[in-house]
């Protein structure tokens, strides 16, 4: 296994006015791994993802992807480099069908609008990739259903399918299981497990069972800072994490 990280940040900081949402974060994602980010509400997890995907500009610090600096690149350039993301809020195009949502995602990575216009082969490639993404996310039977007419869980699946359709190397998923029922959670957890072999995943998730089942590395964030980072087993055993986060989590559930 290679030891050079696929993505790494050094001293990454993001301030909103007086609030430091992400505070000097050093974060390494190794290729082929599932790296989960845990943390209480407001810990800065989504902000971190937004920085990695180029949606936000860091106030300070650096982000390197394949050893190239990417901080300061606009979001669409980051996406073209192979970093796909899904949002915490369901973020699909409700008026388009499932397949059309995925086509929109695939097209830009296969030469864009003009290529699809000009050549039939390019258009077919877009179709194939979109259909494949739907199949992977178990949505083939919904291909022509308008996204708005699907269940919430299916919309979340579609969101993952759209990221897949961009054929990313690294996927940043912000709470893919949020708001799902038990059955949906286990279905999507299975889906994510299947993605493990082909993609590098950064995953924000509150559902502990799923995190422990999926992740190889875990980073725990509190108040914008990294509290602890390590293998799943190490984080499970960490007293510090248990005190600050898991303990609180269990108290909340009790």
């Amino acid at each position: 296994m290679s030891n050079t990280p696929l993505l790494s940040t050094r001293g990454l900081t993001c301030r909103f006015g007086g609030l430091t949402a992400v505070d000097r974060v050093d974060f390494d994602v190794r290729p082929g791994q599932v790296h989960a980010i845990l943390g209480p509400n407001g810990a800065g997890k989504s902000t971190l993802i937004n920085l990695l995907s180029g949606e936000l500009r860091p106030s300070e610090g650096e982000i390197h992807y394949r050893q190239h600096p990417i901080h300061g690149l606009p979001a669409h350039r980051v996406a073209r480099l192979g970093i796909g993301r899904s949002h915490q809020k369901t973020n699909i195009f409700p008026r388009l069908s499932c397949l059309e949502n995925c086509r929109l995602a695939a097209r830009i990575h296969l030469g864009g609008v003009i290529a699809s216009w000009r050549s039939r082969a390019a258009a077919r490639q877009v179709d194939e990739r979109a259909e494949q993404a739907l199949a992977t996310c178990l949505l083939t039977h919904r291909a022509s259903t308008p996204a708005s007419a699907m269940s919430y869980g299916e919309q979340r699946q579609l969101q993952i399918a759209m990221v897949l359709a961009t054929a990313p190397t690294l996927m940043l998923l912000d709470e893919p299981l949020a708001g799902m029922g038990r059955e949906e959670t286990s279905r999507v957890t299975g889906l994510l497990r299947a993605l493990r072999d082909d993609y590098t995943l950064v995953l924000i998730e509150h559902d502990m069972d799923s995190v422990f089942a999926l992740a190889e590395q875990i980073t725990v964030m509190v108040d914008g800072r990294v509290l602890e980072t390590g293998t799943t087993a190490a984080i499970r055993g960490s007293e510090k994490v248990r005190d600050v986060y898991l303990g609180r989590h269990q108290q909340e559930q009790a």
Partner: peptide, 16 residues
């Protein structure tokens, strides 16, 4: 249409 619905999402997909 996608830009109208959600420009951020389009950018995240890779659209300039």
């Amino acid at each position: 249409d996608g830009i109208h619905d959600n420009e951020h999402r389009m950018q995240a997909l890779g659209y300039a």
